[in-house]
């Protein structure tokens, strides 16, 4: 196990992995943006897939770097980078990242990607609702809470099931996980 906190130097295999996962989250942000949604406020959260897969692949420093890059990518794609709306994305993503990484560290293999994903998605949406009540909508935000949290549960569950199946069958992922354990 090498240095757990620093961002890896370019060229090192972990840096390539971080670059790949970042690119994947950019790409998935764009895909998410293109998919028509039944409700405009719905989000699928598929751009979180790299973060979910990365709990076993990256140490905490690069993992948080991936979270930051995901926020940047998402804000670039949706055009909210220099508005305060990006603050919601930032808070939600970092909360999800910390919760997911924490759950993996705490529970190890006793929780699969399904549980990790649900915790991440719901906590991300919960933080955004709290932020919405503090920054913009005040008490009215309590009305959006049930919908938002239920959405997080549903999309988190779906993404978790996908990630768990992907992890079980992907050789690339198996190899990356081997490498990560060093």
């Amino acid at each position: 196990m090498t240095d757990r906190t620093s961002i890896p130097a370019p060229g090192d295999s972990r840096a390539r992995l971080l670059a790949f996962l970042s690119a994947l989250s950019f790409f998935l942000s764009a895909v998410e943006y293109m998919i028509p949604k039944p409700l405009p406020f719905m989000r699928l959260g598929i751009a979180n897939l790299p973060l979910l897969l990365a709990v076993d692949l990256l140490p905490v420093g690069p993992y948080l770097a991936l979270a930051a890059i995901k926020v940047l990518g998402m804000s670039l794609v949706t055009g909210s980078l220099f508005s305060y709306v990006a603050l919601f994305s930032l808070a939600g993503t970092f909360c999800a990242a910390l919760v997911m990484f924490g759950a993996r560290t705490l529970f190890r293999t006793r929780m699969t990607a399904v549980g990790i994903s649900v915790l991440g998605a719901v906590s991300s949406n919960a933080v955004q609702v709290v932020l919405a009540s503090l920054v913009v909508f005040g008490r009215a935000a309590r009305i959006i809470a049930p919908v938002f949290l239920a959405m997080g549960l549903a999309t988190g569950l779906a993404l978790g099931i996908f990630a768990e199946r992907f992890a079980a069958s992907s050789r690339w992922y198996a190899r990356a996980r081997e490498d990560a354990r060093g």
Partner: peptide
């Protein structure tokens, strides 16, 4: 796992 169910 049990913890998955607990999370949900």
């Amino acid at each position: 796992t049990f913890l998955d169910a607990a999370a949900v």
